[in-house]
Nucleic acid binder design. Structure first.
Length: 579
RNA sequence: GCUGGCGUAGCUCAAUUGGCAGAGCGCGGCACUUGUAAUGCCGAGGUUUAAGGGUUCGAUGCCCUUCGUCAGCUCCA
């Protein structure tokens, strides 16, 4: 969520960090035995981690807030003191703060440290902070959650308290109001209201698409197929179940088996594919390609299953079964950069169709990976060069790569500011080796191709989730399950409504009729809640004049529009993919 | 998977400290014949509260286990 209350990012960080320290002070006053973890400012707000046997309750949050209010009223000056490492250690020992000692011990030897003190409390933190506690005028503790010390599941889980703060109470109110609004856009709720999909208790993480959800899904897929065919991708479809041996060859067994499902056929071991690449490799390897054939672009709307940990499932955004809009491109080493640039441009172009802004991240070599350092450096440099030549900004995610190669991830933002990795471009020198892929070069010798894995939507599921939240269910017309809802004013006009709907359907528009024995206002309300794109009412007036009375989901009442004009307008809106 | 919260009708929610399980929406029927965000009346719907076990004269409520779900962590398209 955009937070406009602060002039600059650093101002915001200073403010929130200061509030986190006040939170720590309040907790220490109420629970002196609590040990302090870390308490940074984050994208929206701040948190502080505590190690404490007592579990924080809702009531505790309220009393902590009260104590924080007291600290703010006390108007304590916040004093900054630069100390040596030895002094800092002395401070931490005296305070009996084991986590602070650990932090100090991991910092460089010669680094100067800072301790901030306010009244009865002091904390080791770099700062900068505000000058007085009274500057934090409005704050709220939002929630508690467990969080591993230093983010590692091998470490102890601490209790984290999240909060938000502002210089003025009105800004806090506005923020809380925005949160309520954001919640209304939750795709899980809208999906139910629009009758798009469901998550049966019988299959956690396995979405069940309903007829209207299928419309969106199918539209996305045909759009994608059309675009890729035009760019000389050739579609394939690889089996869902393949021999376990294949996954040993590919390296997935060693690096990914905890996330895979397995099965047996007769006495032999098989795996349900979590990725499409091995299938694509089999397709490539079926024949000998010439350098003249390259690049070979094999695309696949690949249905994969992954055993994701139960706690990570989240509507359509994180599921255990999904369809990746995948493609594997086999190129000559000399073609890699241009192919990467084409792919990156294609991703940007497709996102633009929906009006999405996105952020790019270069994910580098992870700890548990295949291949040599040289190969990784080469691959990372190729990705870097491609984005840079296109003039696209990117961040670096150290160690975030796939086990077989580095990648560029494209993140889309959801309604409450969470970002979701959708598109990805991954460079892979490993699988071609493992599968001994070759092409015949101009010299008549066999050479090793380079493999690029890439998706644009990421998965149809996640992309749909982001779309639904972004548009609050009022999808661009070309994607909308119900493009025209025809309402009859009374039973007398039921036939006229059916006839009109027939005309709309003949014009290629997805149309529904509501001839229920209800008041017009009721049916209009129903259509609005269903987010039907256009509502057309049929009654005496329309029957006489042939003019339609139209209401749009996005623009509201549109008044009267001649029928032919209306149809042409919608056809254009669909064709243009207007958003 | 981990930590914590939650689980009552298809949906959204009620049910004083443990004491006979309710409402609105939706659904079915009837009447009304409807003009841009909810017409009225009647009715069905819970095998008794996610499932299983325990404490108790008595459990939706307390305890345990499992499952699901939500938030966060870790992970990830």
């Amino acid at each position: 969520m955009a937070i406009a209350a602060f002039e600059t990012i650093s101002e915001k960080k200073i403010f929130w960090h200061t509030t986190a320290i006040i939170l720590a002070q309040a907790v220490k006053r109420l629970f002196p035995e609590a040990k302090l973890g870390m308490g940074p400012a984050i994208d929206s707000g701040f948190y502080y981690d505590f190690d404490l046997d007592h579990r924080f309750t809702e009531d505790d949050l309220t009393s902590i807030e009260t104590e924080m209010r007291r600290i703010v009223r006390e108007d304590l000056p916040i004093e900054r003191r630069t100390v040596s490492r030895r002094e800092a250690l002395g401070w931490a020992l005296e305070m009996d703060e084991p986590y602070k000692i650990e932090i100090i011990n991991t910092l460089p030897q010669d680094l100067e440290l800072t301790i901030h003190a306010q009244g009865d409390f002091s904390d080791l933190c770099e700062g900068p902070l505000l000058e007085r506690t009274s500057q934090v005028r409005a704050f709220k503790l939002m929630s508690t959650a467990g969080a591993y010390w230093r983010g590692s599941e091998r470490n102890k889980m601490l209790q984290r308290i999240y909060g938000i703060s502002f210089p003025r109470p009105s800004l806090l109110d506005e923020y809380l109001q925005n949160l309520v609004e954001a919640k209304k856009r939750d795709h899980r709720k809208i999906g139910r209201e629009m009758d798009l999909f469901m998550f049966p208790a019988e299959g956690p993480g396995f979405p069940l698409y309903l007829p209207k959800g299928m419309v969106i899904r199918n539209e996305l897929m045909s759009f994608w197929k059309e675009l890729h065919a035009a760019r000389h991708y050739n579609e394939i479809r690889t089996p869902i179940i393949l021999s376990e041996d294949l996954w040993h060859t590919s390296g997935h067994w060693d690096h990914y088996k905890d996330h895979m499902y397995f099965t047996k056929i007769d006495e032999a071991d098989y795996a349900i594919k979590p990725m499409n690449c091995p299938g694509a490799l089999l397709a490539y390897r079926r024949r000998l390609y010439s350098y003249r054939d390259m690049p070979v672009r094999l695309s696949e709307l690949g249905h994969v299953h992954r055993h994701e940990p139960s706690g990570t499932l989240h509507g359509l955004m994180r599921v255990r079964e999904f369809t990746q809009d995948d493609a594997h491109v086999f190129t000559l080493p000399s073609q890699v950069k241009d192919e990467l640039k084409d792919i990156i441009a294609l991703i940007g172009e497709i996102y633009a169709v929906f009006g999405f802004s996105y952020k790019v991240e270069l994910a580098t070599r992870p700890a548990n990976s295949m291949g040599t350092a040289e190969e990784w450096t080469m691959a990372q440099n190729a990705l870097k060069a491609a984005v840079e030549e296109l003039g696209i900004d990117y961040d670096i995610a150290p160690g975030g790569g796939a086990f077989y190669g580095p990648k560029l991830d494209f993140h889309l933002r959801d309604c409450i500011g969470r970002t979701w990795q959708c598109g990805t471009v991954q460079l892979d020198f490993q699988l071609p080796q493992r599968f001994d892929l070759t092409y015949v070069g101009a010299d008549g010798e066999k050479h090793r191709p380079v493999m690029i894995h890439r998706t644009v939507f990421g998965s149809i599921e996640r992309f749909m989730g982001v779309l639904i939240e972004h548009f609050e269910g009022k999808l661009p017309l070309w994607l909308a399950p119900v493009q025209v809802k025809v309402l009859s004013v009374s039973a007398k006009y039921a036939d006229a409504a059916l006839a009109l709907a027939g005309e709309m359907e003949d014009a290629g528009l997805r149309t529904e009729v509501d001839n229920r024995d209800e008041k017009t206002g009721y049916k209009v309300r129903d259509a609005i809640l269903a987010r039907d794109s256009y509502i057309v009412v049929v009654g005496e007036k329309e029957e006489k004049t042939g003019v339609l009375t139209v209401r749009s989901a996005k623009a509201g009442d549109m008044g009267e529009i001649p029928k032919a004009e209306f149809i042409a307008m919608l056809q254009k809106e669909v064709a243009d993919k207007t958003y």
